[in-house]
Write a protein that binds this DNA or RNA. Structure first.
Lengths: 344, 344
DNA sequence: CTGAAAGCGCTAACAG
DNA sequence: CTGTTAGCGCTTTCAG
């Protein structure tokens, strides 16, 4: 196998200088069409492959964007990635993707790797175990634009694009109230994360706003977002002397798990208990009954995150931190619908 | 913001040569502990970040591995990516991930981008629209190890790790036969892809091996792998004069779609019609009834793919193309179970 | 329209 | 144990 051809090989074979080849290959208009053609032809013939590393080193611009997600299970993060890829590639950026696996140590390593790779910006959704932020500060110290999405730290001066989780939860619970539910339980996620904390807050405020009191007994703290933890939660709730008549879950999988348990106990959904989840996972349209859920705008979130990055790198001055908040969308399905009608 | 510190800055401030710094930073043991300590300290102080680009250029080794997946919806590809990441990072490789979006043009661009980025190998699962393979040959011509996973071209000399889709389908259909089903329908995927073609072949052979004939009327050709196409397929099958008593789907989502339609028609699963899917999506444990499916060994596939790559780059000689075939696992759930018992 | 020369940041002989 | 030197492949002044 022949050694990989470089710009110098082309130059020699054509009796031209490397700079001419470079310019020809990059389509500069101060090169004659004739030479351009010759260069292109030989490049093809030699199977020439530009070395991005060398160009990036020289230009001081890698055209790479770093991305860190906690995991890629479920529908949400992949959809964000779709949005990111679309906008990034349109702007001429390649995306270097890492998973932190919900582990802050891994997240730190990801940051290191991306910084070493000379990415021009980093988009990150924090891991579940991230409680300190020095590794992020380091990024900013290097002058690398840093954009959080979905999961962000509780700090003032950070750029982020997030969902209005509070509103999403509020709307879902309001909907349940309007369907006639009065004892609405909640599957709550970790309260140190902005996302699930705000869902919990939205839940509580929606109850209060509609004259219902918040009953701590009706809140089950999910150990994780699996369907198994929803099953466990439902079993707990069924032990209560007075059973809830609805459940709002911070995630879809536990909601579906709860429905499994209800089915086993011959408790009808939504007649005996209404159920609503959060994320709008594709499978929510496939459960029996279909599951009401809140859409998280994943794709749009990804797009906005890249756009924010693109803005940041344009400004020479440190421009004020921006926070973009997307509106959630409640998708009402059979698991919570027309309770009044169905009840009788 | 200070200009990013380089190895030269450290050298100057310490009155040492750059090579000493380089060696110290890389932990060579021909540098005194004393100087190592000084170097490390100043590096930390200056917020020094090694420039991987420069090192890679010089060493001719990028420590980057390219990955192309058709999409990251559903569970399968993310699980493969998990396996890839795990083994790759253990071997000191960073993964550069691209999506082809089931578009061969995009796939070609991805290949270009990865080649430009000087990846040391490429792992790829072909897009659905890939019918020609020059872009892959180009990779091999450059001497870059190329490993296909799951979806591979019909060529002899390619390295690949795939699932035994034929066996998976065969087992699923055999299971349905053993449950007493005699008119087993099939939701078939595209026949130009090894995966879904082999599932179709396994389906047919399992029927024949058990004395059942293959009825073309019972095969519905899925336009895609969405649940909607499964709903459409089920509706078609219900128009037949003689209704099937089981359905084996090439994907899980259409299988779930079919179950929705059956539920609407008050056709019981599995009593009136058994259902089995393919992929073992997490949601298959959450449908009503739970869906029988074939696990695709995603994680193991990813791990094997990286291991194969690592082998390939060790051999100086072109070693013979390897094909690793993983064994599928049939997960029997309620949607197909104990038909005989339940029927009466 | 083209060439010469310098250098991005780092590593790796080769010398001491 | 440390320094000198050359150069990875490319882009970009500065000169013609």
């Amino acid at each position: 196998m022949a050694k990989k051809a470089s710009i110098t090989d082309i130059a020699k074979q054509l009796g031209l200088s490397v700079s001419t080849i470079s310019r020809a290959l990059n389509g500069h208009d101060d090169i004659s069409e004739a030479t351009k053609a010759r260069v292109w032809e030989l490049a093809k013939e030699l199977n020439y492959q530009p070395n991005h590393l060398a160009a990036a080193l020289r230009k001081g611009r890698s055209n790479m964007l770093g991305l860190i997600v906690p995991h890629i299970n479920g529908y949400f993060f992949p959809s964000v990635m779709d949005g990111i890829e679309a906008v990034a590639s349109k702007a001429g950026f390649n995306v270097m993707m890492c998973q932190s696996n919900e582990d802050v140590r891994r997240e730190k390593k990801n940051i290191e790797a991306l910084l070493n790779a000379q990415v021009e910006g980093i988009l990150v959704s924090m891991s579940r175990t991230t409680h300190e932020f020095q590794h992020f500060e380091k990024v900013q110290q290097q002058g690398i634009p840093l954009v959080f999405f979905d999961r962000m730290p509780d700090l003032a001066n950070v750029n982020a694009v997030i969902l209005d989780d509070y509103q999403g939860a509020y709307q879902a619970v309001k909907h349940l109230v309007e369907q006639g539910c009065t004892r609405i339980a909640h599957f709550a996620g970790p309260q140190h994360m902005n996302t699930t904390r705000n869902r919990h807050l939205g839940y509580m405020d929606a109850l209060r706003a509609h004259g219902l009191s918040v009953d701590e007994q009706l809140v089950y703290w999910l150990p994780n977002s699996s369907h198994a933890s929803g099953e466990a939660g439902m079993k707990e709730l069924l032990k209560l002397p007075e059973r809830p008549d609805a459940i709002f879950s911070s995630y879809d999988f536990p909601a579906a798990g709860a429905m499994m348990v209800l089915h086993e106990h011959n408790i009808r959904v939504p007649e005996d208990m209404a159920v609503a989840g959060f994320s709008n996972e594709p499978f929510t349209a496939l459960t029996q009954p279909r599951l009401t859920s809140v859409d998280q705008r994943g794709e749009q979130m990804g797009e906005s995150a890249v756009q924010l990055f693109l803005q940041m790198r344009k400004r020479t001055e440190n421009f004020p931190a921006q926070r973009i908040v997307l509106k959630p969308k409640l998708l009402i399905r059979d698991s919570s619908l027309q309770l009044e009608v169905k009840k009788k």
